[in-house]
Design a binder for these strands. Structure first.
Lengths: 336, 336
DNA sequence: AAAAATAGTTAAATCGTTTTAATATCCCAA
DNA sequence: TTGGGATATTAAAACGATTTAACTATTTTT
């Protein structure tokens, strides 16, 4: 209340130096290739005065002059979805260690909203973007990349886009868990996936096909594609699957498998006695339903860590340096 | 890539007016009590030029000059916790409608980290704060309030602090669900709570006591207080509770009840046949474990909505207007 | 001893807006 | 015709930092 904003000028006056020198000390910066040379004693005095006056740099002024906001924008499908919430949490912590902040946005898997949210973040003036691209956002993504904004994709990649990404080896992961189901004797294995066109689920489908074909079960391949947020069809699907004599389900995501599991149990069946189940992502539900569920654990911490590291490398590169495009593929862990 | 930043000056030149006028039009502002009067035709022309040049206002400059960043800071316990993730999601959407952005931080229920995160947000220059105060953060909170930063507390309130808050009527909610357990015949009802000192769990404990005492069961009152993140003690506790002949559990939170439920089921018991359970917050686990669980549904959307509304009212009040302190208590919904 | 390099510091421009106070124009009443 | 009020517009001063180029000293090299 009492204290008007303390500025660099106040410190300069108090310490008997110029504002410029204070600036140099506060953000120990490089000019050209050289480090600014400040007398250690002067530097110490300035820091003491700053401390004493409770100086807090004004980020807006900094950002205005330097063009860097120290903020990065993150767009996920839905921050309330546990998978993305966890990633968000790691990103938040990682950013902190780089002296950065994070602003989040949720796309709801809607390309129009995706564009809008990205624009809001860009208007805010983020130094970079970490995006979970949603289906149909290719146009927006191309514009972003073309405009030279530092960007890293996460969880899903977009073919033909010159941009770094961090994804899971979804195809192998899916293959392995389906093989596990096969080794347990299941033959009629359905996969439940999303109808939206994103690389992660498409790759998982391919892994499922790989495993089924390798086992000579091409005829048993059945991929049920559910529209995002249209979950009313699950009961019908389950009834139909039962009539086909399905023995096991492989679920592409968290949400889907909760829905199908719920349907299985509502109908009075048990896992794994009546139906085998394999799925992506852990869930507290396992704690209550025996030990029969095979699942893929995604290294959420690495998703965040690698993405942040790539982004920071892009942000910190010298203006004329080439943009390093790197595609990181993370290995899953298969657990029960 | 091609386009250097388009500024207000570019528009002014193109439209043949002064930068000031462009500014007035872009943010249709009030001067003193009066609205700036701009000729509708001029206004239209300026907007057209702006549109045509793809003008994007520079937020840093705006913020520097006006002192408003259009960003609000939110600190929760852990953004990865479903309850807070959902609140975060609503806050994000609500903020958008006020033309604001949100930056999140997680305190991990650690007062030191709470202070640090709040300071990071303040350094960033947020226009206001929405906080879930953690135990032991009273000092930090008092400083915040004393410094006149617009603040609203959510989920938990801090007695003796002159600040608006939005909380659940935790006491009644707890009383009602315990009464439900009682009406189902349970007499030996334990409550599982946190040892940390926050208003929400304390109020819930009081509600539990109210119900037990009203039923003449004062002697059966047992509140098990678990330290945050020290969940290894749950199995011991459960064994001890069994030996006491406990028939029902009332759990103070999401996380706690998942843990206890898991322990119940791991030991081969069933809900509600062997143990009755009542708890706060819904969870997908219910979908898989019968219909016996009584739970309190918190109106998460209202938490966010009311808090944002209060905060906006504070932010938009005239400098000399009094700070309106309002305590909103939300009604829970009791479900099975 | 002169020239060159180095170290330490600063003046002043600049970033893109907002905002205050002033001005210019027109209209109508006195 | 003069003056007062609207109405519409603008010049110019902020806002608080960063950053370039310049300017002293001082030291080193030739």
């Amino acid at each position: 209340m009492t204290n008007r904003h303390v500025t660099i000028k106040d410190i300069a006056r108090e310490a008997g130096v110029s504002p410029a020198l204070v600036s140099f000390v506060m953000s120990n910066r490089v000019a050209g290739e050289q480090l600014y040379r400040v007398n250690p004693e002067t530097s110490k005095r300035i820091l003491e005065v700053a401390e004493h006056l409770h100086y807090k740099p004004n980020n807006s002024a900094r950002a205005l002059r330097s063009g860097k906001t120290g903020t990065i924008g993150v767009v996920v499908s839905d921050i309330a979805n546990p998978f993305f919430a966890e990633i968000a949490r790691y990103l938040e912590d990682d950013a902190y260690h780089y002296d950065y902040n994070v602003i989040f946005g949720s796309s709801d898997e809607n390309p129009e909203k995706f564009r809008r949210v990205v624009n809001v973040l860009l208007n805010k003036g983020v130094d970079g973007l970490i995006l979970v691209p949603c289906a149909g956002a290719d146009e927006t993504l191309r514009e972003i990349v073309a405009s030279g904004i530092n960007t890293v994709l996460i969880d899903r990649k977009v073919p033909g886009l010159e941009v770094s990404s961090v994804v899971l080896d979804n195809r192998s992961a899916a293959r392995v868990i389906v093989e596990k189901l096969l080794s347990r004797g299941a033959r009629r294995i359905d996969m439940v996936s999303y109808s939206m066109d994103i690389s992660s689920t498409r790759d998982r489908e391919q892994g499922y096909r790989d495993a089924m074909e390798a086992a000579g079960l091409s005829d048993n391949i059945h991929i049920e594609r559910v529209a995002h947020n249209d979950y009313a069809c699950i009961p019908d699907y389950f009834r139909e699957a039962r009539s086909r004599g399905v023995e096991a389900f492989m679920m592409a995501t968290n949400t889907l498998s909760s829905l199908v599991l719920s349907e299985i149990i509502r109908n009075g069946f048990r896992v794994p006695e009546d139906y085998q189940v394999a799925r992506f992502d852990r869930n507290s539900v396992y704690d209550f339903n025996g030990h029969g569920i095979i699942y893929v654990r995604q290294p959420v911490d690495l998703f965040a860590g690698k993405a942040m590291k790539l982004l920071m490398a892009e942000i910190r590169r010298k203006p004329k340096q080439e943009i390093p495009v790197e595609e990181i593929v993370l290995s899953p862990e298969i657990l029960e």
